[in-house]
Amino acid sequence: MTGEQLRELIHRDVDGDLSPSEQRELAQALRRNPSARKLHAELTALGTALSSVPQVEPPANLVNRIRADIRSRISTPEPRRTRVASLRALLGTPSVLRYGTVFTGGLVTGALLFMFLIHPQPSANVSGDAATGTLLTHAETFQIDVSGAKGTLTAIPTETGKELTFRLTCGASTMTKITYDPSRVKLENVREVQSTGGPVVVNEGVVQMTGTGSQKCTLAFTGVYRDSRISVQIACAEGGKFSKEIQVR
């Protein structure tokens, strides 16, 4: 067993994650290795100390504060499902509800047919010129509605060594998670909440990368809340061209 494997076993033991055979394996290793024994004792004590920290009583009025806040917000626009419930109450009798449902269903079907067959759109979640693979020059600005959605934005410079700049701005009160490859992308002025190579939560900032003509720069985004939106401006240095691709799912 390597030192790294032993350390992992020790940590997993602290978390109560070992199988009986792994526990035996660890016990044997600890008998042979005093420094591992010391680490095991220290981490076990730490785990115990952390778990023993008492719970804090929330303020007595917290529940009432939350209730009042929610009720003040729903007095005007209700959540969508609530509106369905209200509609049901308004329509009253089951037969009226049935005919109403059929009629509404017809309207919705018609609208969908119009949207997708008669009036096709490149992506329902993207405003501005965001058609897949469109060749663009200089700069392009558009918005991506990322409400509860995941997606990727990829830009590919068509010439070698052209620097691409993404200017990303997310709504101040919304949470939009943008992940990127830190080895390929330089972030400037980015308000970063999480980091260390993992996903970064960004509210606003500039993302820069230098493409080589064949390299792609891909940013993945997740809209955590309703109305999460990213405003994106992609600019290519010295009038270079680039193509971009947006996928939202």
């Binding site: 804090v56 929330p58 303020p59 917290l62 504060r65 939350i66 806040d69 929610i70 917000r73 729903i74 959540p79 969508r80 499902r81 409400s147 509860g148 809340y225 309703r226």
Partner: peptide, 22 residues
């Protein structure tokens, strides 16, 4: 911070309610 934690908790439940359909 105790007060900040209360604010965060309030905001958590409000956001959860507003986004329940999601």
């Amino acid at each position: 911070d105790f007060d900040d934690a209360a604010d965060v908790s309030q905001s958590v439940f409000v956001k959860a309610y507003e986004n329940l359909e999601r």
